[in-house]
Design a protein around this nucleic acid. Structure first.
Length: 385
RNA sequence: GGGUCGGUGGCAGAGUGGUCAAAUGCAUCAGACUGUAAAUCUGACGCCGCAAGGCUUCGGGGGUUCGACUCCCUCCCGGCCCA
């Protein structure tokens, strides 16, 4: 269940209630694709203030496999993450593995055949299987299998992906209802289900896709495919308009978004949920996000000024820089260590460095989202899904 | 003292008459990363130049040759073996 507590013209603050607890919106989920946020224990994620994390259907299905997960109970038990979990459907892998490298699989109207990049083994995902797996994972929020085309595909092919995504969404919804019935899951305990809106940069395709998905009916709607164009520019207008197509009482999930400024913009357009590998991956690669101001909120919402900057701790200039990474951060890196030490950890290829950097970046993201949640406190709106 | 192998760019280490400013790895210097095939990937890395191109290099010196990192002489330095 999703409740909007307050809103400004477009952005809003709310609360999601799930079987495994509440999540305050807007929120950011770190990607625990294979059942773990690389190098970071769940205890630390909780301490950072993250209320939900994202796992991936395709990756967990491959490894460790559903037999193991079911033997453990579900993904919550297996991972020892008792709080809300959202699973992505494997739809993104249709893009990242197959669209980007056709050798790695095949997409038909009925199914997706993945050839595992690691051992070449073949695995079939259908909309129904994707939903069944997500029920077996025991997640609190699940996503329909979709077909995210690269943004530089011709319009015709993107339109095809839209139609396929709609057909698959219908099949997912049907399977979802079947599973709810078979598993005798109550309305209060049922996981939320998200449809995914495709359409590339074409607003009328995005609109059409949204309308068709809304007819099927979902708890939330995701923005599918990449939200940056082929040149790497944030597709601001598409994100803004697409949010406006989605009914107000539904959750809006900006999948894979993004950089801090992209999240802030999406939030202002009315998006509620975000996930991205940036804070963890870039942290592991040595890029650290640093607050330019004490209050992220003010700069992020009320001015055009950059509210953060990044550094690459690998750069030689940090060799003897004994200052803190971020004076305004209270993460375990910033409280305890200097840039020079972190630089040393990185140049020694010590995993502690990557870990501390990822933790710092996640804290930055968590603090940013907290600032956004605190940014709206005018009128309250009660809505029933 | 005799013998022997060797001395190549920051380091390690290929090359053994022209295709060599010299493979490769490391180090160094930068860059990228957006529902994770990513502790990964790109690029630069003798000097000058945006570039084309030019210039100086393979322990020192001398020589052979149209041409030498590559062959010869000699000196210096190092490893190993024998005395």
């Amino acid at each position: 269940m999703f409740e909007i507590i307050s809103k400004k013209p477009d952005s809003r603050v709310g609360k999601i209630r799930t079987k495994n607890g509440e999540v305050n919106t807007p929120f950011f989920m770190p990607d625990a694709t294979r059942g773990f946020v690389r190098s970071i224990d769940n205890e630390i994620l909780e301490k950072i203030g993250l209320e939900a994390i994202l796992i991936n259907t395709y990756h967990l299905f491959l490894n460790p496999g559903m037999e193991i997960i079911k033997e453990a109970g579900d993904a919550h038990n297996f991972m020892n993450w008792p709080k809300p979990l959202l699973s992505d459907s494997g739809g993104y892998q249709v893009f990242s593995l197959i669209h980007k490298n056709p050798k790695l699989g095949k997409i038909t109207d009925n199914e997706v055949i993945f050839c595992s990049p690691t051992d070449g083994s073949k695995h079939i995902l259908t909309p129904e299987i994707a939903i069944q797996i997500q029920f077996d994972l025991g997640v609190d929020m699940m996503v329909c299998l979709d077909d995210p085309p690269p943004n530089d595909y011709p319009r015709e092919k993107i339109a095809q992906a839209v139609e396929r995504t709609i057909r698959w969404a219908k099949r997912c919804k049907d399977e979802y209802e079947k599973q709810i019935k078979e598993r005798k899951i109550s309305e209060a305990d049922r996981p939320l289900i998200f449809g995914v809106i495709q359409g590339g940069e074409y607003l009328n395709l995005r609109k059409h896709c949204t309308e068709e998905l809304v007819k099927i009916g979902f708890d939330g709607y995701g923005f599918g495919a990449r939200h940056i164009d082929a040149q790497g520019n944030f597709m601001e207008e598409v994100l803004r308009e697409t949010a406006s197509f989605i009914p107000e009482n539904a959750l809006r999930f900006a999948l894979g978004v993004g950089t801090p400024e992209d999240i802030v913009k999406c939030y202002s357009f009315g998006w509620d949920m975000f996930d991205c590998v940036i804070p963890t991956r870039e942290g592991r690669h040595g890029r650290l996000f640093i607050r330019n101001v004490k209050t992220l909120l003010i700069a992020s919402l009320q001015s055009e000024e950059n509210f953060y900057e990044t550094i690459n701790i690998n750069n030689g200039k940090y060799k003897n820089d004994f200052s803190r990474v971020d004076e305004n951060c209270d993460c375990m890196l910033c409280k305890n260590h200097t840039k020079a030490y972190l630089h040393h950890l990185f140049s020694s290829k010590e995993m502690l460095g990557m870990r501390l950097a990822a933790i710092h970046n996640l804290k930055f993201y968590a603090d940013l989202l907290e600032a956004l949640r605190n940014s709206v406190n005018s009128k309250k709106i009660e809505l029933k899904p």
